[in-house]
Structures are given as C-alpha cells and as structure tokens.
C-alpha cells in the first residue's frame, strides 16, 4: 500500500523511532562516565567500567554459561524440532491435528510459570543437576521456533522432489540431508538466530533454574543491580548490544532484515 503521508504522521513516527533508539545511546554514554554512580550525560570519559567487568569473575562465568546454554539448548531444540516439523508437514494426515498445537504451548504458557513449575517438579522433586534443567528448560523455551519457523519453510517445500530422489534410489536419510535440508536452510538459520537470541536474553525461565554456582548473564546483571548502581552494568549492556549488532549483521547477510516483518 502507498498513499500520501500527512506531515504530522511522519513527524510522530520519526519521534517514535528516535525514542526507540535513544535509550540505547544513553546506556553507551553512561558506560563511559567517570563517576561511581550511573549518570547521563557522562562526566569525563573512562573505560574502567569495561575493565571492571573482567575483574568481576561472576560476569565472566555467567557469560560463558549463557553462551553454553544458548548454543546447546538451541542445538537440542533444532535436533528434535526439525524432525517434528518435517513429520508435521510430510505426514499431516497420519498425525493427529492437535499435535501441532502442542508445540505452541511453550509460547502460550507464561515463561515465569514454566520456570517455577520446572523448579518444583524437576529440579527439586527429581533432583536433576541445575545445569541440565537449565539447558532442558531453554531447549523447551526455544522449541517453538525450531518447529514453527522450520515448519513454515517446509510448508512451501515441494515434497515431490524428495519422492523423486527416493524413487531414483537415494536412501531416505541421505535424501533428507542432500535434498530437503538445503531447501529449508533459510528457515533453519532463522530458527537458530531467533532461538539463540531468545535464550541469551531469557530472564523468566532462568530465574528459577539457576542455582548455587550456576547462573546466566541476565540473572547475574539483575543480581548485581540490586546491590550496586555503578556504570558496570551499563558497560555489560554495551557488550550485549555489540552482540546484538553482530546477530543483526548475520541476519542481514543471510536472510535480510525484512524477514522479521513476515
């Protein structure tokens, strides 16, 4: 659609976009302020808050845990989610119609309820190790991306190509990897990125699943903020925003950013 725009609309929209971006620049400013409290505009310029991050070992260890959980959890979700998405598309008539809705549940059920329930029923009742429950909780949280985003790719895949390969004697598993997978790679990449970012940023599920010695970066940031109100958090936030920029560059290079509006 395209019609003429009233100037008032354009001005309002520009303001909205400015307000969306401005707070992130304020964090950048606050992270270099040479004061022991958070302030903007920065007073003096220093990088000591960035070096301070690396002196606080909790930030280092939780950042590593977050990356491990995000990568392993996403990998697990894709490993079991892609076959499920394939089955839901390929064998639609042989599977019950409600099964697709099962994979919407992790989005539908509030994350904080999921975290609390996992703590109660899995960590405490079954006594599983903290890291394992955290990993499984994150895999569950991002499973809908694997099933639904990959599923959307599979929905536009012409399965007769696969049948052709199989009837020409290609084994089913090899057919999947050489014929089906290359055709849905955009969906797999999109699912991976969305899942990874969701896991890295998650608070509500991790909140209940972190335990002594094992925590994730967002939870550590929250804990730090309750005790200190210094620019360290601003500099950690800047590092996380650099990660976001990296992810956006990957999205732009592989899929184009407009895929997020579809």
């Amino acid at each position: 659609m395209r019609t003429s725009l009233h100037p008032a609309l354009t001005i309002t929209a520009s303001l909205i976009f400015a307000i969306l971006v401005a707070p992130l620049f304020i964090i950048l400013g606050a992270s270099v302020s040479d004061t022991s409290y958070l302030t903007f505009p920065p007073q003096g310029i220093t990088l000591r808050w960035f070096t301070n991050i690396f002196e606080i070992s909790a930030f280092r260890t939780t950042a590593i845990t977050s990356l491990q959980i995000a990568l392993l959890g996403t990998a697990l979700a894709l490993l079991i989610g892609i076959p499920a998405a394939y089955a839901l598309n390929r064998f639609r008539i042989r599977l019950p119609s409600w099964l697709a809705n099962v994979f919407v549940l992790p989005i539908l059920v509030p994350e904080i309820v999921l975290g609390f329930s996992l703590l109660k029923s899995v960590t405490i009742s079954l006594g599983l190790p903290v890291f394992i429950v955290l990993l499984l909780g994150h895999a569950l949280l991002v499973l809908p991306y694997a099933v639904r985003v990959v599923g959307a790719s599979l929905a536009s895949f012409d399965f007769s190509i696969e049948e052709a390969a199989i009837s020409l004697g290609c084994p089913p598993l090899k057919t999947f990897f050489t014929v089906v997978l290359p055709n849905i790679s955009a969906g797999v990449i999109a699912a991976f990125i969305l899942a990874f970012i969701t896991s890295m940023n998650d608070v509500s599920v991790s909140l209940f699943l972190t335990g002594p010695g094992i925590s994730t970066l967002p939870i550590q940031i929250l804990a730090h903020m309750e005790q200190f109100f210094d620019p360290t958090i601003a500099s950690v936030s800047v590092l996380l925003m650099i990660l976001t920029v990296g992810v956006m560059a990957i999205v732009e290079a592989t899929l184009g950013l407009t895929f997020l509006t579809k």
Binding site: L20, P23, I27, L38, V203, P218, M225, L240, T244, L257
Partner: peptide, 26 residues
Amino acid sequence: IIAAVFPLLTGVVVRSFAWLILLGKN
C-alpha cells in the same frame, strides 16, 4: 526497520535498565 529490530533483539534486562538511567535521581 533496523531501529525497531535492534531494541527487539536487545534483552529485556538491558532495555529496562535504560529506563533506570533515564528516570533515576541522577
């Protein structure tokens, strides 16, 4: 779209924290 996607991909903790700096005493 970049201006909308960037905050969206930045975590909820970081984005809430921005408002802490905006609205705080200093």
